[in-house]
Design a protein around this nucleic acid. Structure first.
Lengths: 232, 232
DNA sequence: CTAAAGCAAGAGCAGTGCTCTTGAAAAGGA
DNA sequence: TCCTTTTCAAGAGCACTGCTCTTGCTTTAG
């Protein structure tokens, strides 16, 4: 795999990367809906049909970009948490730092954020390759909760009986060792975090919230409270 | 305005409605991205260029559909609240009923929900006509909080100083009489509610949450708690 | 009854994703 | 070294898309 194969293979890898780079550039400039294979090919000095040798369809190209976006966002979240951890921040501050990192990444890569957390492309369902990168942010949040839980426990209201088995299953599957109530709260907080970011990014706060940064930090703190991370 | 004008005007109104109906049908079937003027015209037995007499562009048609979607969702939320209120439900139950109504509407009209709360169409910014219908759900939530506040007050942690003026402005502008901390929590809860619904609708819960209904109801209860609506 | 306004239809432009064929270049075995 | 097989870019072409502009016909209003 790592050995240097013929010039053919190397050229193929390079061209594939060049296509993805150019596509990402056009994605950032005009959004996923206006991403056209012909334009990418034109910019690369090749003809549109040649592009199909590298990506069998437009959707495949988008999938590649989605995976990259998940990875990029996940890395941003992990770095923010690592920094906060190194600075000796308490769990609540780590949580807020990660939330802010997600928001910052989204503001810097609006179209890539929309690609992964916005409305799905019709007739397109994310292949299995995406679930790994997609869970990186969630895992960071779980890690923070686990650290806090192992430190001194998390106080949360009990789950309604109807949700007991479901939350237990989620805990066993994604966050071994955490109480089901915490896991349920984490999953909800993850979706709510995306809601806050999406509303700001998609213009729903236009004319409503002006001090977006301060508002978001406050909301992230509320989210932390919701998963049992106390205020100091 | 209400007088019966010539046959021309009446025909115009009818054709406009027919176009919107057919467009909504195709929207529900294939999503906004695949909504084509030509297909709508074809289905209506007219030629594509004739459609431009009624809607100057595809985006204008989408705007009309967006306004209708906001109105439909707003009406669903208002009805749910009215029903809960008539049944003598406490504020927290009214809140949950409205949240569930939003979710139900979204599950029944996924593409219309995506149109209003999903990624915006690139190069398209929502015109001012949409802000009125868009705020109906928010107003319902504000109404519930106001009812609870005037009943016995809402206990919420104090706002951080940095957010005081901003929250005060929002309160004065949208929810006269409610404490700024409550208004800030309401706006955040509104975005978080959309996050929960979007995650479920856009497939982000696939492989994670299975018992979606029970999970959502629990999360809506947490949201209610977050705006100070206590558990009974 | 006639002039003005409203309107459907058609042709056409520039763009899209995608397929299929053709001819050239590179790779590897004889 | 030659020669066959694989790999690939290019081009033509299909069926679409949103949109514009012109051409006539019909309805309305004076």
């Amino acid at each position: 795999m790592n050995t240097v194969r013929g010039a053919r293979e190397r050229a193929r890898i390079e061209v594939t990367a060049a296509i993805k780079d150019e596509a990402r550039r056009r994605l950032a400039a005009e959004g996923a809906a206006k991403l056209s294979l012909r334009a990418v090919a034109r910019e690369l000095g090749m003809v549109s049909s040649a592009l199909y040798r590298y990506f069998p369809s437009r959707d495949e190209l988008l999938t590649a970009l989605i995976i990259d976006a998940y990875d990029s966002l996940g890395a941003a979240a992990e770095q923010a948490d690592a920094r906060a951890l190194a600075a000796g921040a308490p769990p609540r501050d780590r949580w807020i730092a990660v939330c802010e990192a997600v928001r910052t990444w989204a503001l810097e890569h609006p179209h890539e954020y929309a690609l992964v957390y916005g409305s799905p492309v019709p007739g397109y369902s994310a292949p299995a390759d995406t679930v790994g990168p997609a869970s990186r942010v969630g895992n960071v949040l779980i890690g923070i909760a686990r650290g806090a839980y192992e430190g001194r426990g998390l106080a949360l209201p009990p789950l309604p009986p109807a949700l007991g088995p479901e939350a237990g299953r989620m805990a066993a599957e994604f966050a071994e060792g955490l109480p089901p109530a915490v896991v349920a709260a984490l999953v909800a907080a993850w979706a709510q975090l995306a809601g806050l970011v999406s509303f700001e990014l998609f213009g729903q706060f236009k004319g409503v919230v002006e001090e977006r940064s301060a508002f978001f930090t406050h909301a992230a703190g509320q989210l932390a409270h919701g998963v049992g991370l106390s205020a100091v």
